[in-house]
């Protein structure tokens, strides 16, 4: 049994994620919960959840690293870092050859270029506009009267793909309604929406400079339709990890582990010299 553990907390505005790793960086447990607008509480909840899943006690947790929108308000933490740094680390740990990360979350999207050693190079964020984020798909799912989870498969199955030209979520919604009124089929519209979000994100990514291999992270990576379209638009295969939503928290936990190891090393050196 590992003699200590580290927790990474990614507290987004929509969902809170936690990852618990052991002293060798092995992922022991993770948790994902909607925040319901209560950031501090949900941070506590996901932390407790990973502890209970593994039976680890809080005293064995040597570091807690926080990231995401709510990173600074979590009280009991070792350090807070931005999602850029944590997503880069999480992607790199999952697959060291990765050079580019595209993260599409509930309310923002990011593109990160990694240098050859996994460090953050250039990055771009879109947090001003819903188009190009998970929120876009949420709004559209409601408008179409379908479940968010259905969208991916629907898009993949559709032979046709409607053209959506509006760049703004609000106007795209009106456009979708017009398309339905004109007789376009729902799967075709869904495919069009997936393409729209992919094109939007492509714009963000190309500003950074697309460099394969590319990993896609974030909740929207679970939407196969978006992944497929993004891959087409980028003209690249995309690597989607098993749990794309927790990459940020994973990265945070690994950074925490590195911190603990460095700290231990220093402590050891000090003890030796006394």
């Amino acid at each position: 049994m590992s003699d200590y553990f580290v927790i990474g907390l990614d507290i987004g505005s929509a969902t809170a994620k936690a990852v618990l790793v052991d002293n060798e960086g092995k992922k022991c447990a993770y948790a994902v919960r909607p925040t319901g607008g209560r950031l501090v509480q949900s941070a506590e909840d996901v932390k407790k959840e990973v502890l209970s899943k593994t039976g680890v006690v809080e005293e064995s947790v040597k570091a807690i690293i926080t990231t995401g929108y709510g990173r600074d308000i979590v009280q009991n933490k070792t350090k807070s870092l931005t999602e850029i740094t944590c997503h880069a680390k999480g992607a790199y740990i999952t697959m060291p050859d990765i050079r580019f990360v595209i993260d599409i979350g509930g309310q923002d999207s990011k593109a990160i270029l990694l240098e050859s050693d996994g460090q953050v190079g250039r990055f771009e964020m879109n947090d001003k506009c819903a188009a190009g984020t998970g929120r876009f798909l949420e709004v559209m799912a409601r408008t179409l009267g379908i479940h968010l989870d259905e969208m991916g498969d629907m898009a993949l199955r559709s032979e046709k793909c409607s053209k959506i030209s509006s760049t703004c979520t609000v106007f795209a919604e009106s456009e979708v309604i017009s398309l339905l009124a004109q007789g376009e089929e729902i799967p075709s519209v869904v495919s069009g929406l997936c393409r729209a979000i992919a094109e939007r994100v492509y714009g963000l990514a190309s500003r950074v400079g697309i460099t394969p291999p590319i990993m896609m992270t974030g909740g929207v990576a679970k939407n196969k339709g978006v992944v497929s379209w993004l891959s087409k638009v980028l003209k690249q295969e995309l690597i989607v990890p098993e749990e794309p939503q927790i990459i940020g928290a994973l990265g945070a936990s690994i950074i925490g582990l590195e911190w603990v190891k460095k700290n231990n090393e220093t402590m050891n050196k000090i003890t030796q010299n006394i």
Binding site: S165, T167, E199, Y202, G203, S206, R207
Partner: peptide
């Protein structure tokens, strides 16, 4: 049409 290249 869109201007994805120019947007960079």
């Amino acid at each position: 049409g869109g201007t994805p290249l120019a947007d960079q």
